[in-house]
Design a protein around this nucleic acid. Structure first.
Lengths: 219, 219
DNA sequence: CGTCATCTTGATTACGCTCAAGCTCCGTGG
DNA sequence: CCACGGAGCTTGAGCGTAATCAAGATGACG
């Protein structure tokens, strides 16, 4: 990991920060880059920083002592992550592609007197996270493997409108997000292709062939 | 459902509201009561109210068109619920016992100029919800039926310290929270008893017999 | 062109679901 | 006081979906 700016920037930039609150993190955050598979923060580390993806894709994940892994979510350019209720992170965060990330120390907001300005955005981001978590709960609790994989592709397609959708994560990442094994994910993808719902020219990109069928499965 | 105070109270009480922000909802909220199994709000209703449980137990749940149900969480006295990111509720809320609930219109906070005072509590409650949701994701994604039921009992015991723990919800509610069927829940409870981890004198109350074993299973 | 990681496919197993019957606990009424 | 009925819970038998174990296929990279 490398720092693009010195941490000193944080203090220098703070007084200048004004205007729309959406800009606060851009103004007083520190830009950092992470290589593919590099850890951004660890499970059980102190949760005092807020992160914003500039480019690349980030995953949050939790591994139990016996090796079972669950992925919390995937984050793309523009998404905030790392905000949590407890003192410690429940999930770790890793770059799944080379990434650029803005990092903001939440205590710096207080020091700079920008907390109020930023707090509405912070609440929104937290509420949005909650919303996505609840959708995830529905998926894990009551959907079949076929529906889970369909929902996942639907989510990817929704985020990246365009003919061909890129799949930035591995089958293992998908499986650990969906509460399945890689073999099951692979089989369901094959089935979805056989049913002409989607088409995979290669294993990391696909096109939606039957939007209606996909939406029905994802519902 | 019955209103203990007139809605007018909301406006009357607002100017008097001062001091600790934790009191805001108590001061300007409206008290309502709900009978067992009564709906507090429905799925896809507008999400503009915030609720606080005074007594009894509330569940949030989501039912798909084909009848599959997932329970989001259970709420006890002191818990806030109903806060959501979208305009519409993803879950409905029902009383699982006779309940008393404080209801607060979030727009009233703006009107009364109390939003800032309340916002920190609101953010905390949202972050806490997120934390619980993430734990729920871990449970649903990567735990066995046996571990899920053990985790659930652990959670009940933690909330209500004391020798005998009451189980306010039905087996169906437990099953729909845990992503299982009532039969599986029942079998796992029988197994946990057979292994002397817990003991059920009746089906709605239990004692923890082996704290360590229960904690290990729930981890 | 060879090597290794990733992905897919196949065969078998097992965990939890479905369907079905029986039990327990309550409230109601004879 | 006991018989009846119904809802909720438990137990049993068999099945099906997804996991596991094990080969192959594909693709990226040196």
């Amino acid at each position: 990991m490398t720092l693009a700016h010195d941490f000193q920037d944080l203090m220098n930039a703070a007084p200048a920060a004004a205007g729309r609150s959406g800009d606060v993190i851009e103004r007083i955050g520190v830009r950092m880059t992470f290589a593919k598979d590099e850890e951004i923060y660890g499970q059980d580390e102190e949760a005092e920083l807020i992160y914003k993806v500039l480019s690349g894709v980030v995953r949050t994940s939790s591994v139990t002592s016996d090796g079972r892994r669950q992925i919390g979510d995937f984050y793309y350019a523009g998404d905030l992550f790392g905000l949590e209720a407890g003192d410690e992170h429940r999930f770790s965060a890793e770059a799944i592609t080379d990434c650029a990330v803005l990092v903001l120390k939440s205590s710096a907001l207080n020091a700079a007197g920008l907390k109020a300005e930023f707090s509405r955005d912070l609440w929104r981001a937290t509420a949005h996270e909650l919303d996505r978590s609840q959708a995830h709960i529905l998926l894990l609790g009551r959907k079949t493997a076929y529906e889970r994989v369909a929902s996942f592709l639907m989510g990817l397609a929704r985020r990246h409108p365009g003919d061909t959708v890129e799949v930035p994560m591995s089958r293992q990442d998908m499986a650990d997000y969906l509460g399945l094994t890689i073999e099951t994910v692979s089989r369901m993808l094959t089935q979805l292709q056989a049913s002409a719902v989607v088409e995979f020219p290669s294993c990391r990109q696909f096109q939606v062939r039957n939007q209606g069928a996909l939406a029905r499965l994802a519902a």
